[in-house]
């Protein structure tokens, strides 16, 4: 059996008396989309933030490609190849779409502290950035300011930014949030392509999307993983139906 790309073991995080994550264990295998679902307030976003390194966890371990990354900050984890997207688009709104992506390409290159060569003629940045925009379906919007993009396009840009990092793992926090049916279908297709390059840990609220794209699903309720399995297993699981599907349906 191959090693997981990302492995979370017995992870706990409390905010005062509120236990946002309790003994969470899950793994992400190469080539899969592993979806993490759960009702509002289940601790999904807290889990994403601890995995990304934005908040420190209280106990437990996170392994990335077999290596412990508990002590690394968010920037170091990103450099290792953990690309996260944000639930609420996090972009430089005053920059062009292309510049947003160029920054992500530049960050991976590791050559940030260069003070003289203009980025505008820098083919080492422009080439990969254009390719990512092409993949994310934003080629025509390259020169548009991020602020002028539609909601759906901003979600696409989030994904282009993750792509630009050439990640080993995608960590996607509700990438479909607030999207119309047409963009949803396009994004689902994109996700299936993405998993060929790197596995995706997909945090998602929309059940239909999850069931259509995920290879495996974990269900998070009140900070605990109550079930992990294939789509059919999760559909059939009585605990999940009681805790989540029952409420949703």
């Amino acid at each position: 059996m191959t090693d997981p790309a990302l492995e979370v073991t017995n992870l706990s995080k409390s905010f005062g008396a509120l236990a946002a994550c309790r003994n969470v264990s899950l793994d992400l295998m190469p080539g899969e989309i592993h979806a993490l679902i759960g009702p509002n307030g289940a601790g999904k976003t807290t889990l994403v933030k601890t995995i990304a390194g934005e908040i420190a966890h209280d106990s437990g371990h996170i392994r990335f490609g077999g290596e412990l990354i508990d002590d690394l900050d968010a920037a170091a984890r990103a450099q290792l190849g953990l690309a996260r997207t944000f639930q609420i688009s996090s972009l430089a709104m005053e920059m062009s779409v292309l510049k947003n992506v160029m920054l992500a390409v530049m960050a991976v290159s590791g050559q940030v502290f260069r003070f003289f060569k203009p980025v505008n003629g820098d083919d080492a940045l422009l080439g990969p950035a254009r390719a990512c925009l092409e993949n994310a379906g934003l080629r025509k919007r390259a020169q548009t300011r991020a602020a002028e993009l539609s909601h759906g396009e901003r979600r696409q840009l989030e994904i282009a930014l993750a792509l630009a990092m050439k990640p080993k793992v995608f960590l996607m926090d509700e990438p479909m949030a607030g999207m119309g049916p047409e963009s949803l279908a396009r994004l689902s297709g994109l996700l299936r392509e993405l998993k060929q390059t790197a596995p995706v840990l997909l945090i998602e609220h929309d059940m239909d999307v999850v069931f259509s794209v995920a290879d495996r699903i974990s269900v998070l309720v009140y900070g605990e993983v109550i079930a992990t399995g294939t789509v059919d297993e999760i559909r059939a699981n009585p605990d999940v139906q009681a805790a989540y599907l029952g409420d949703a349906a």
């Binding site: 920037a75 920059m95 930014l161």
Partner: peptide, 15 residues
């Protein structure tokens, strides 16, 4: 420029 506009994104990019 990114640090000014969106430090969160800069961090998530690895800088």
């Amino acid at each position: 420029e990114m640090a000014r506009q969106n430090a969160q994104r800069l961090t998530a990019s690895g800088i």
